[in-house]
Design a binder for these strands. Sequence first.
DNA 1: GTGGTCTAGACCACA
DNA 2: GTGGTCTAGACCACA
Lengths: 125, 125, 125, 125
Amino acid sequence: MIRFEGNMPIYMQIIQKIKADIVSGKILGGDKMPSVREVSENYKVNPNTVQRVFLELEREGITYSQRGIGTFVCEDDELIKKLKTTQALKHTKRFLEEMKELGLTNKEISEYIDLLKEEHKSEST
Amino acid sequence: MIRFEGNMPIYMQIIQKIKADIVSGKILGGDKMPSVREVSENYKVNPNTVQRVFLELEREGITYSQRGIGTFVCEDDELIKKLKTTQALKHTKRFLEEMKELGLTNKEISEYIDLLKEEHKSEST
Amino acid sequence: MIRFEGNMPIYMQIIQKIKADIVSGKILGGDKMPSVREVSENYKVNPNTVQRVFLELEREGITYSQRGIGTFVCEDDELIKKLKTTQALKHTKRFLEEMKELGLTNKEISEYIDLLKEEHKSEST
Amino acid sequence: MIRFEGNMPIYMQIIQKIKADIVSGKILGGDKMPSVREVSENYKVNPNTVQRVFLELEREGITYSQRGIGTFVCEDDELIKKLKTTQALKHTKRFLEEMKELGLTNKEISEYIDLLKEEHKSEST
DNA sequence: GTGGTCTAGACCACA
DNA sequence: GTGGTCTAGACCACA
């Protein structure tokens, strides 16, 4: 169960959750996804919202749907790996740009990361 | 000139840009800010949007306005330092969350950063 | 084995394939069609779907079923020729509509065809 | 005003119409699109349906939206040209495959096209 | 005014 | 049962 946060729209939070599950191997290539109705009940969210999630995932090539049968995770493992790398690079690039913009040096950036890494450890689930 | 990106609302992007300019010393404590109209023309943006930016900056205590004279950057150096730290922590926290969600270890995160740090150096402005 | 494509429903794709096989002479008039179960296993498809395919083919007079014996391709050569023409016209009409909609002239349409005809030759099966 | 046809979903028909208008130059790069509400009233269609149309066009990079301002056609003329070529090639490829599947020769294919080209002329708007 | 998100709910094609 | 389309309508952030 997700607790939906702040400003990010619900459908995006669900997308992120699913992507994370795929990328981290909780959901495997070829797996059948739960149906729109199941996800909708599971997250207490309108089916249309889930529909949108599935549409988006399909458009990104992460899943494919077969009418009357269900929605499946793409079997192309390469694509999934690429997804992970692409996402990671995107986040890192953005982060570095933001930090540089504040006038921080590489060294200072590393210090901030080390600082919060520790916190993450101690409060980790 | 900013090229406005993706989903982040324009007013937030301008706020972030101004904060970065203050924190990195491009704009100094006590400096007069350009007028709403100037910023609006400069960025080709609706004056209402700039108005909102100024309101928010003032609410956060980063600027103060003097009726009929203009808006000025707060002279409190402490506050500016704090602003720098706050922003840096915010970016770092978000970044680590995103990377963890992809299932990346601390070590992998560091590798991504080191990878892009290098690029930043070579193509640096 | 067919790889089912995009949006066209599976049952239609199978119908089209069978029609093409009849029209091109791979299946001959009077031939016994494989059973629903065979087709279903062959294409890894739900028997209901195949049932629907057979129903439709029979409705169009392309096949006829004999209870307890099986389904047979119609022996009427005229009908098969007509089928060929009908299908060809259908495809052509649709194609021309799509191309016109893009604002292409007759000349440009011919150029596209000549271009791809060549490719088809060189990589032909 | 479009009269919506047969099986193709309304939102796709609107997308096709808009793409055709862009590709044929009726709508130019940089133009502001009519608002969701306007299109919705214009076509007597639910705003959500139009929303979906705009989403799709944006995802394909054909338009971009600015919150609170409106939706605009992408200014990249190259992209629009590419769109035209891509679409044309896609249609042609599919068409040739279908016709080959019927066992038709290149010459026969050309004959079908010439046949219908004529009709298109005589009944053209 | 303009786009974005979400709910509620109907109806359909397909398997 | 499963996904796909569409309507009606609310509420919001943004400009």
